[in-house]
Amino acid sequence: MCAKPPASISHRPDNLAAAFGQYLQDQQGLAAATIERYRAVAWLFLDGRFGGGEVDLRTLCAVDAIDFIQRQAKRMRPPALKCVVNALRSFLRYLQYCGESAPKLVAAAPSVATWATTPPLPRAISPEHAQLAIDSCDRRTSLGLRDRAVLLLLARLGLRAHEIIAFTLDDCDWDSGCLHVHGKGRHERLLPMPADVGEAITAYLSRGRPRSEDRHLFLRSLAPIRGFKPGSDAIGSIVRYALRRAKVDAPHSGSHQFRHALAVRMLERGASLVEIGDVLGHRSPQTTSLYARVDISSLRSLAPPWPGDAR
């Protein structure tokens, strides 16, 4: 069921935004960080329209959505503004789903022009720099053992940060040599565990993981000893510290560059886009198709011959 607002027409912005966030969690299965961003946009929209007072949803109209986006456009770059538009549309669809607004209100949120004919190529870390980051971890310490296992999961399997945070001890199937990955939108998949990844996880479990009743695979190194908080930047911090130790000037400081590097490497070795999408957990082929532009030689083979070519 929809986490529907109370039956009365008047609401408070914080209560309405909270109900929206609960709906995203229960019905959409979005990541915690995405839910928080969308909830914040919904609150900002309502607070700006009604000044923090009671909300009368019957008075919302297309101009309200347009004015809100125009105000945000003055302080945001197009990529960030597109995220705000997506969040606002999601909130307006939620109101429509709950019978609190007309369908035409969803279409009122304007599109954001980025003036790019094609999406930008993903920024990938080079194999050499990735290995330097992995080798920078001190295997004589529990922290180094943990961070090395995390970096190998990023480099060998291209996992998302939240997927690594969500790992539990039960997700390691040692008999079959597989990992049970909890992806976006509650999408789950099984991936084979590479030998070096398995060895790194085993080393962490036997010599580095603190004693704890928490079943998460990777734990904080400082008290309170527990798994990383969902939606936190813990994996990103591990990557940044490793790059700094290795003195690597990478194209990006986040964990996704390892994911992009794996996709490029698989493509260069002859993997199909479908195979790459299966490993990365893409739910749409369109997402994986971005990597096709990386392999120029393969794309040339798809081009038809020029009219009149003597071949």
Rank of each mutant, 00 (worst) to 15 (best):
F50M: 12
R215H: 12
D67V: 13
L205V: 03
A155K: 12
R148F: 04
R215D: 12
G236Q: 10
L273A: 03
H252F: 13
E268D: 03
H187W: 03
D56G: 01
V239T: 04
P103V: 04
G236E: 09
L191E: 14
I134K: 01
R293I: 05
S284A: 09
A73N: 07
D233I: 00
C178D: 11
A310H: 08
C2R: 06
V84E: 10
R139P: 00
V150I: 15
C61A: 11
P5V: 12
T117D: 05
V181Y: 02
L280T: 06
M1L: 03
L222T: 11
R75C: 08
D138C: 08
A108R: 06
A7H: 06
A310V: 06
L132V: 00
L132W: 01
Y94T: 01
S101V: 13
L157V: 12
R12D: 06
K4F: 03
H182T: 03
V294Y: 14
R148P: 00
V264G: 01
R300I: 10
K184P: 03
Q25D: 15
A223S: 13
E163G: 07
A292E: 08
F45Y: 08
R93P: 02
R140K: 08
S289N: 14
L153P: 02
A17L: 12
G52M: 06
R37Q: 08
L191D: 15
R311W: 07
N15F: 03
L88S: 12
G281V: 04
I296K: 11
I134M: 10
H180L: 13
D214F: 01
G99R: 13
A203K: 00
S10F: 10
L267M: 07
R139L: 15
C178A: 07
D249A: 14
D171W: 00
E36Y: 13
G21M: 02
L222D: 05
D175T: 14
G185I: 09
Q25S: 14
P127E: 09
S297M: 11
I296F: 05
R269V: 02
Q27P: 01
L222I: 05
K82A: 15
P120S: 10
S212Y: 00
S301I: 01
A292S: 13
S126C: 01
